[in-house]
Structure formats: structure tokens, C-alpha cells
Write a protein that binds this DNA or RNA. Structure first.
Lengths: 255, 255
DNA sequence: GGCGCAGCTTGACGCGTATCAATGCATTGC
DNA sequence: GCAATGCATTGATACGCGTCAAGCTGCGCC
């Protein structure tokens, strides 16, 4: 897991980060010179709320939770970040939320000072950071939309569709096998329950309610097959959240 | 209402926008040259979801809703924006949400092309835009926290505290009279209900439940007096959302 | 002044879900 | 192999809230 921080490894990792694709070679070289790979295990904290993180990070593998412990002992999860996402508060203050690993996570870290200096010198990099933040903002608002559904089944439907839409390219979480759409839920029931503003028990019932109605099939608790995409869209109550054609890349024109 | 777009008026408006404070005079002059004031009435749409807005705007007065009509007829509100906030998708695609006025609104609009050109030429402006987006992201996540409370009273408590914390400087929405903390709810019950993922009836009950328990006093449906701030913090379940001292500017050291 | 309208409030009822408790099921360690 | 542990699941019950329906209140308008 804990790969060595050799130059060749780092070059590999940087090349795999989608947002870094269009950057000028000179900038990539500078970035490569200052990046360090780090890895974390499940539930390990990367940084805590209130902390002034000394680096900015790009996720090169795994899933990160953005969470906040509540006074009553509950844990609110306000975001999940995946491969390619950036975290850390560049040009800004302390973290507002705790960062924790969900499953094994590998990140590519840049010293905050050096990265800020680079961003000031390279407008391309600053633009990349801004687009990353805009992207996060969209995600956050889509989550809000999902959270405003009353029933747990509706929120769950919205979550499954969100995974399909946004995480197609991430670590094969979503894939089509022999015309069947299957996806891997990358978080356990408890985390997902926190995320969907409900409890594990209710979430479990919601999963099986969808299964009983023939909308999904549960191969394992983490392996889901989508049987009736239109019905899920209908249930999520926001079919127009997904512009027509959003799912076309999942179903090539062979169909 | 519909003030003329004279140079002196525009200078006034630009000067009142908090984020523009530290900008270099030359940049301010350029901004002043390309800005146009616009005003909107209650419920008027500024732009609709999917539209590619031809300008970026800064709110100089009033409140804007970010909303999305749902398939089932409900209206989801995913954000409120106030004086000083920026909207419009600079360097990016079409709007993901509809922008609508809540009450009378006045904005300061810049042609998108010209503003982007300015931002490319002035790093200070691009930085300002980025900090604005970061700020929006924080707001969105705070809203998510509020939305994850189970009970409507908890969400309402969170909303009231959010107004206190973030909108102190906005149009005297929050003020202290003779040691009493009073605030003006800037949206009607129906909008607020959509916002808190509930219904007007339940929201009304929640307001009066808080009043019966002595946490607040309802002078009118829109004029609230906070009687027991600690109890509200406790109820909202996220007292640590508000760092110690957040409310100190409301209660100067005279107390 | 009285009428009408829109928005806030209150009441009654059924449904969905939080909660508590117990069981099933897999994986880990000895 | 067996015990122990962590997680998903299922069952029973109480409570909060969405829903429908009916009053109430303030306000503008003729």
C-alpha cells in the first residue's frame, strides 16, 4: 500500500489525475517536484475541523468523507470526495469539516505554501483550482437536492443515480456487464445512513423495499444491480436533475 | 426603485460591495465602467436553470433564491444569497439552478465576457471570485448540516442561528435593541418551508413550539426575538458549528 | 366601512421512520 | 474448528410530520 515516493511513481500518479491533463509540461514538472504521496486506512482522519491544513491534496485513489461530529453524538457527513477531487483550503483559513478516509485512500499532497506560490505564478493552476471548487459546489447542491426528499427510498434512489452519474469513471464503481448496470457502494451502511440523514435500520429497509419493487437487485450489501433506471429516476423526483443523455455513456449505442 | 445607471450611482454601489474593498483603484474604475445596475421584484426570475447567463452579478440589495422545480410540483431551494454575494458561472457552463428574487432585489451586473477578460488580466479579481465561491461552498455545507437534522424544530433553530451568524451585516436583518436580540426573517413561510425541507404547516408549528418553550418570541411572523440563545444552540445539535465567540459582535463588551 | 384575497395558523388523522431490541451472517483470531 | 466481533437485517412500538380541511388575520381595493 505505502508506495515509495520515487519520482517515477509520482509522475505516474500525477499523470492519472484527470484535472492535471491540460497543464503545461513545465508546470507539471514543478508540481511533480513538490508532491508527496500519502496513504490512509479506513476511518483514519486526514485532518480535523478547525485545523489549518499544511498541504492541499488531490485524491489519487479511494474515497474521502467530509464530516462533522454533532453534539448529540451523531456524525453528519456533508460530502464524499473521489479520485481527482481536491481538498484543503487554499488561500483561506482553517478547515470547517473533518476529513476522514472511507476505505483505503491514497492522496497526492502539496505543501500549501509552495502550491499557493505556484498558483500565483501559473494562472492555469489557479484556474484549475477554481474549477475544482465550482465542481464541489455543484456536488454539494446536488446532495442538498437529494436531502430534501421526504422518504428514505427517494433519497436512496437519488444517491444511486448520483453515483451512476458522477462516479462512472471512478475506480470502476459503475460498470455494465452483459447489458446489466452494476455498481459498487463504496461506503458502509452506517456511513451512508449518516449521509442520507437517516439510520442504518431505515436504510436497510429502503434498500430492500427497492429490491422488492424490482428497481434494484442486491447481490451483496455493497454490490447493486440497477434493474429499472426510469423508475429510480421517477422515484428520486428530480428526473430533470439529470439532463437527457446523462446515462448514455453507460449504455453505448449497441443497445 | 429603478435607479438610473449614472456613473455616480454605480460608484456608490460598487463602493458598498464588501468584497470590492481591497481592490486597486484602477481595477475599480474598469469595473465601474462595465457594470450595470438591475432590479427585480418579488418572485421575479433572474435566470433559469440550463440558461447560459450572459453576465455575472453581485447582489447590492435584497435576497436571491437558488431553486429547482421538482417533478412532483415541489420547489427545492438549495441556497439563499445576500448582499455582496456573487452569482453566475464565470469560466464555466450553464446554470444548474434557477435564480429568483425573494423580495425586491438590486444587483450589479457585469458582462460575462468583459468580466472574464478583466479577471484574466487582474489576478486580484480572479482571487476575489475564488474566495466568493469558497464562501458559497461553506454556506452550502452549513445548509446541508441543518438539513440533516431530523426534527423541523432542530432545522428551524439551525436556520435562525445561521441568520444570526452570517447575516449580521446584511440590511439590519439582525440587531440588538436594549439588550434584546431581534431578527427579521427575510422570506415568507412557504419559501422557508421549501428551504427547510418541510411544509408551511409544520414550519408554523415549529415556530410556535419554540415560542411556547420560551426560546423565541414571535412579534410578527417575520419579526423574531431570540430569548434563549444557548437553548437554540443546543437544539440545533451543532453548537460547535459556531466557533466560540461567533456571536460576540452581536453583543459588544458593554454587557 | 365592508368585501375579498393571500398567507399564517390550528385541528384531526394516517403514514413513515426513529428507536430499542434481537437475530442472522460473515470475517478474524486463537 | 470454535468463539468473538462487527455489520446488516428484521421485528415491534411510539412519535413526528405530511396531508387535507377549516378557521383566522392582516391588507388592499372598491
Amino acid at each position: 500500500m505505502n508506495r515509495s515516493n520515487t519520482d517515477s511513481t509520482k509522475r505516474d500518479v500525477l499523470r492519472r489525475l484527470p484535472s492535471f491533463g491540460g497543464l503545461p509540461p513545465d508546470l507539471l514538472a514543478e508540481l511533480g517536484a513538490i508532491c508527496r504521496l500519502r496513504s490512509y486506512r479506513h476511518d483514519q482522519l486526514i485532518a480535523e475541523e478547525g485545523e489549518r491544513l499544511s498541504f492541499v491534496g488531490f485524491i489519487s485513489g479511494g474515497i474521502l468523507r467530509l464530516q462533522k461530529p454533532q453534539a448529540d453524538g451523531r456524525l453528519s457527513i456533508v460530502g464524499l470526495m473521489v479520485e481527482g477531487d481536491m481538498f484543503g483550503r487554499i488561500f483561506n483559513g482553517a478547515l470547517h469539516f473533518t476529513l476522514a478516509a472511507t476505505g483505503d485512500v491514497e492522496i497526492c499532497a502539496f505543501s500549501r505554501e509552495l502550491f499557493e506560490e505556484l498558483a500565483t505564478r501559473w494562472p492555469e493552476l489557479e484556474r484549475l483550482v477554481m474549477l475544482n471548487i465550482l465542481n464541489e459546489l455543484d456536488s454539494a447542491r446536488e446532495w442538498m437536492l437529494i436531502l430534501t426528499s421526504y422518504r428514505v427510498t427517494e433519497r436512496l434512489a437519488g444517491f444511486l443515480l448520483l453515483i451512476c452519474r458522477r462516479w462512472t469513471s471512478v475506480a470502476k464503481l459503475v460498470r455494465v456487464d452483459k447489458g446489466r448496470l452494476r455498481l459498487t457502494i463504496p461506503v458502509n451502511r452506517t456511513d451512508l445512513a449518516h449521509f442520507l440523514a437517516t439510520r442504518p435500520e431505515s436504510l436497510s429497509r429502503a434498500f430492500h423495499a427497492l429490491a422488492d419493487d424490482g428497481l434494484i437487485r442486491l447481490h451483496t450489501p455493497y454490490e447493486i444491480e440497477i434493474l429499472d433506471l426510469p423508475a429510480l429516476l421517477d422515484l428520486s423526483g428530480s428526473e430533470d436533475l439529470f439532463t437527457p443523455g446523462s446515462f448514455e455513456d453507460l449504455f453505448p449505442r449497441q443497445a
